[in-house]
Design a protein around this nucleic acid. Structure first.
Length: 434
RNA sequence: GGAGGCGUCGCCUAGUCAGGUCUAUGGCGCCCGCCUGCUAAGCGGGUUUGGGGCUACAACCCCAUCGAGGGUUCAAAUCCCUCCGCCUCCGCCA
């Protein structure tokens, strides 16, 4: 949810943002109109409610006087008449107040549902346009070259006894897999390495719920893309596609202390995605699967620190990729390809030799105060006011990384060299075919 | 799955049975001031959150807020219903 004050003061900024996303610009005016209506009906209701309260108080006073007189045995006729009169006045008002109250509530709901439809305002410098309009910021390393015909990650994985797609499909269906033997060990080693790095930089490691309530899923903005989210109707719970969801919900309805700097969490969770819109894409291997593991960084910070923090998250992702000795590039995602919550997003894409192109391994988003407004997470400013915090997230490692690791570090005999930094976590320096 | 208890403005707590100066009590903590060799103590004041009005985003005024949402009523912390959460006991289960 964006700041309604920003929208009132600077609607053109929001219009421009919607335009660069390719989203609906007219939503801006519909929100402004709904805001106007909400405030008018609220004022009407509140004015009459004030009247009703004071009249109702007269009833209380009249009843008190009447009861006192009865107790003393004094004549009560006048008092009874006065009490009845006050009650009648109040009854008339009451009906009208109820009407106005419902009108105000309705206007409030209408306003909020419209406001929620607006995506976050993109930051200065974000390239306009869609998926293909990203800007490449930097290339790190050179695409790996081989003096033999490289195998793809699945062929390698099968030879190493690391990946079993066939039995994955038997058990879970398409896009499910087993990691076996060194495959399972490799993933655990990588994830542990990611957590170790996070801890080194002061993150609190977290193992999070992967089933969440609707309001949490909605608060992070993922419910807008609900066709990609697993839902358990019997319990009305959602399976999370990233621990970001649980970590964003962690401080819902709280006023957190940011006086000592940002709150940094590293969430480890299994992630579930329906991949409903990607039938036929990446059907081979573990590039795009329904279930995978991820270590995710999540940060709560003051809004004015968010841009700098975003760069830090990117730097931590780069450090991980560097330790995996992978060639990659960094892209500045175009506005139309941002999630509704993000104001800017940088992806790191690693070179996948058998595809001859770069594929996303990490993604870091600055959601500014957008998620925090929906989830009601605030901090106290030095002046003592409460304000929404900024939230950011970024990937430290996922199952998909195994694709890049296997393919880039393969040798002619089908073995795979383990990156130096990973060796202590895995306890192996090379993976050999069975 | 069954039975019972509980949820009050940071923490604890009074109020709920018998609806009406509840404009929610008191303590702790915290903030400001006074007093004071220093510290402590003492004294006085302040201290939920959200929204609206008016504005200097101040002060002030108004509305809502007693887990959440409905209902009854002139009037709800208080009565009724639904939901959520916590605790205890029983049952079942990795």
């Amino acid at each position: 949810m964006i700041d309604i004050k920003l929208l009132r003061d600077n609607p053109d900024l929001v219009r421009a943002s919607q335009r660069s996303r390719g989203a609906d610009e007219s939503l801006v005016d519909s929100v402004l109109a709904a805001d106007e209506k909400r405030r008018t009906s609220l004022q009407e209701f509140e004015a009459l409610r004030g009247q009703q309260k004071s009249v109702s108080k007269n009833v209380g006073a009249a009843m008190g006087a009447l009861n006192a007189a009865k107790k003393k045995g004094e004549p009560t006729e006048d008092l009874e008449r006065a009490a009845q009169q006050a009650r009648d006045d109040a009854t008339t008002l009451s009906a009208r107040v109820k009407e106005l109250e419902q009108g105000a509530a309705e206007a409030g709901r209408d306003f909020e549902s419209r406001l929620k439809q607006l995506d976050n305002v993109v930051l200065d410098g974000v390239p306009p346009g869609g998926e293909d309009d990203f800007v490449e910021l930097e290339k790190v390393g050179e695409p790996t070259r081989f003096d033999f015909e490289p195998l793809d990650h699945l062929a390698l994985g099968e030879r190493l006894g690391a990946i079993d797609m066939e039995r994955g499909a038997k058990v879970g269906g398409a896009r499910f897999y087993f990691l076996t033997g060194v495959g399972a060990r490799l993933e655990l080693a990588m994830l542990n390495m990611a957590v170790a790095q996070a801890v080194e930089y002061g993150f609190t490691p977290m193992i999070t719920p992967t089933l969440v309530r609707p309001e949490i899923m909605d608060g992070t903005g993922y419910l807008d893309a609900h066709e990609d989210v697993y839902h358990l109707p019997a319990d009305d719970l959602y399976l999370t596609g990233t621990s970001e969801v649980a970590l964003a919900g962690y401080h819902k309805d709280e006023i957190i202390d940011l006086a000592d700097g940002p709150r940094r969490y590293a969430g480890w969770s299994t992630c579930y995605r329906r991949e409903a819109g990607s039938h036929g894409k990446d059907t081979r291997g573990i590039i795009r699967v329904h279930q995978f593991q991820k270590v995710e960084m999540f940060v709560y910070c003051k809004p004015e620190d968010a841009v700098a923090e975003h760069q830090r998250l990117l730097a931590w992702e780069r450090e991980m990729l560097g330790k995996m000795e992978l060639p990659y590039r960094i892209i500045d995602t175009a506005a139309g390809d941002l999630g509704g919550s993000a104001a800017r997003k940088f992806d790191c894409e690693a070179w996948v030799p058998t595809q001859g192109r770069y594929r996303e391994l990490t993604s870091t988003s600055n959601c500014t105060t957008y998620q925090a407004r929906r989830l009601n997470t605030r901090f106290r400013t030095e002046e003592g006011r409460t304000e929404p915090v900024a939230t950011l997230n970024g990937t430290l490692a996922t199952t998909r990384w195994l694709v890049a690791i296997l393919e880039n570090h393969q040798q002619a005999d089908g073995s795979v060299v383990v990156p130096k930094a990973l060796q202590p976590f895995l306890g192996l320096d090379v993976l050999k075919p069975l």
